[in-house]
Design a protein around this nucleic acid. Structure first.
Lengths: 327, 327
DNA sequence: GCTTGATATGTAACCGGTTACACATTATGA
DNA sequence: TCATAATGTGTAACCGGTTACATATCAAGC
């Protein structure tokens, strides 16, 4: 790797001049510029970002803190984030915390000592005090933070309502629900919206985390305790997929006997049999927005937004019967 | 953030001494060590990794180059890689190339200028000349590279054979296959193994890439052109899921009328209805191995392995009928 | 008592950039 | 014509670590 000194020597100028043409600032004569550009081309020079970092105290790195990239909701988010970051010349450092505070703490010091320029936090654990004292640009994604940290989330409450409305509109009268982990604010709202609209049509409910295995157990519990019901809303698509599988096993026909709606809009929903009707969050969009917001923060373009609540939409596939069909 | 100078001043020693206690090398008296440790604790000092990088020319960063984290095969790999990296004090930088050479090239210079210590390449595109002239420790994962680059792959050929054996053993006589993208060596081998064992029992075959949408089209094509068949091997689990969905739509019963086997062993296979029988690669293990190998390379512990071929196993779920059942 | 090696510590150069500052030189305008 | 501003370029300090080297002390060995 060539250094700036070598370039300077070859172009017969000082390192300052080379730096000036690289960064397009300061005065540089046409001849000098040309000589430098030639030398850069000849030597295939690319400035050492570590050296630059040391002086400028910026690294071009964004830390991405998520619970587990293996959870199918996160890859799309990660992809969106990485895309936007890359478009703006940033790289992203991936961190899986498993929601463990110590791991999170470890990543935080690592990221800080390597001078990441900002953080995107998709950890759902509420109120980690680590963040607030961090003094780094950051935005929370699919997560709510108490203090004044920017957040991008989807409208879970409306999503829950929409799920109930949809089920009811297509004839469901006995509703069931599998809620997500209780400590997740954003997920709780889905349940609240659903419950509010369902009213006393809600005849059964249980909880599950977001692993397929546990969701399957929850589905079984629900069927055992509350069957029959004709409309079910799951707190996310993984849980919905588990319900679908359990329904097949019990020879419950979907959507004829039971309509199912998930939440998230991940690709998994297209792959189930039948394909899953779901409340879709604009996942990629959320990642994009969060990252653009973060980069604005990093580069001090202070748009004053504080919390972005994105609308969800109904993606109607084949686990619901469509409006009016049941009336 | 405190600097080494501040620590030195507070401990009444020179920066060299502080550096010595941080790195546990050179001679340091017990008193000096204690004073320094106290100062470090007082100031909450953590060394600036950028500064250290500049001198040592190591960054503690590993570049992870993959086609698309959104493809459900990759998150588990990424997770394994990140886990192992983290255990050894490395961070990982995520890059999605979409198999585009220019994007790849862009990432490569970015990663190089930030002095990543090594690369893990899961891009399936063969023979990118960019890598060979790179002079960085690297290992290919699920990918075969011509030159002397280490590789970790699973035994696709045996996997293909195993799929055929399994299908035949449980009574299938008319076999079909959906192969993956032609340019992927590792995927091609699956087809070769399957074809070799199937012999003239193979009555129909088509191709697809790894998107669900295209897989669905391929499945339709296959059904239209070659139905009936009673055993199908798909080049990966996403394609198998598409086949399952298409089978449901055509009222083909799985596994009674048609047995299906996928390849990969991703979690998706548990979530389909019925759950998918598949040839499982040890995905996490592959990621772990590749990363450990890379770190050995980086830290100059030269274990001479060159290509690691991992065995695959049959994960029998409910899209096959089990041995002997069809006889 | 003197040599020698182990122990202990500080000074300063170095890594490869950026930029403040000094010092030209060349317009520009009154 | 001369003051002033705009333009062009180099030197050296600086970012925060690491480490070669110089120097000093002390104990062991003869």
């Amino acid at each position: 790797m060539a250094t700036i000194k070598q370039v300077a020597k070859r172009a017969n100028v000082s390192v300052a001049t080379v730096s000036r043409v690289m960064n397009k600032n300061g005065y540089v004569s046409a001849e000098a510029r040309e000589a430098v550009e030639q030398a850069i081309a000849d030597l295939n020079y690319a400035p050492n970002r570590v050296a630059r970092s040391l002086f400028t105290k910026t690294s071009g790195l964004i830390g991405l803190i998520m619970p587990d990239i293996t959870n199918p909701f996160f890859p799309q988010l990660a992809r969106a984030i990485e895309d936007v970051a890359n478009q703006h010349g940033y790289q992203v450092v991936l961190c899986n915390t498993d929601e463990q505070l110590e791991k999170e703490q470890g990543y935080l010091v690592a990221l800080q000592t390597m001078h990441v320029d900002g953080l995107i936090i998709t950890t759902n654990h509420s109120d980690n005090p680590n963040y607030e004292k961090l003094d780094l640009p950051m935005v929370a994604l699919d997560r709510i933070v108490k203090s004044g940290i920017d957040a991008v989330i989807s409208d879970g409450y409306e999503g829950g309502r929409l799920a109930a409305d949809t089920l009811i509109a297509s004839g469901a009268t006995r509703l069931a629900h599998i809620a997500g982990p209780e400590q997740l604010q954003t997920v709780k709202r889905r349940t609240e919206g659903f419950v509010d609209v369902a009213g006393d049509r809600l005849i059964g409910m249980t909880h599950s985390n977001f692993t397929f295995k546990e969701a399957l157990t929850a589905a079984q519990t629900l069927f055992d305790a509350h069957w029959p019901f004709d409309g079910l809303f799951a707190a996310n698509d993984v849980i919905a997929a588990a319900v679908l599988q359990e329904a097949v096993r019990r020879h419950v026909r979907v959507p004829e006997d039971l309509q199912v709606i998930g939440y998230d809009g991940i690709e998994l929903g297209e792959m189930t049999s039948p394909p899953l009707t779901t409340i879709a969050q604009p996942i990629y969009e959320m990642g994009r927005l969060a990252t653009e917001r973060l980069i604005d923060l990093i580069e001090k373009r202070d748009t004053e937004t504080k919390e972005m609540l994105l609308p969800v939409t109904l993606t109607e596939r084949q686990t619901t019967r469509g409006k009016g069909s049941g009336r």
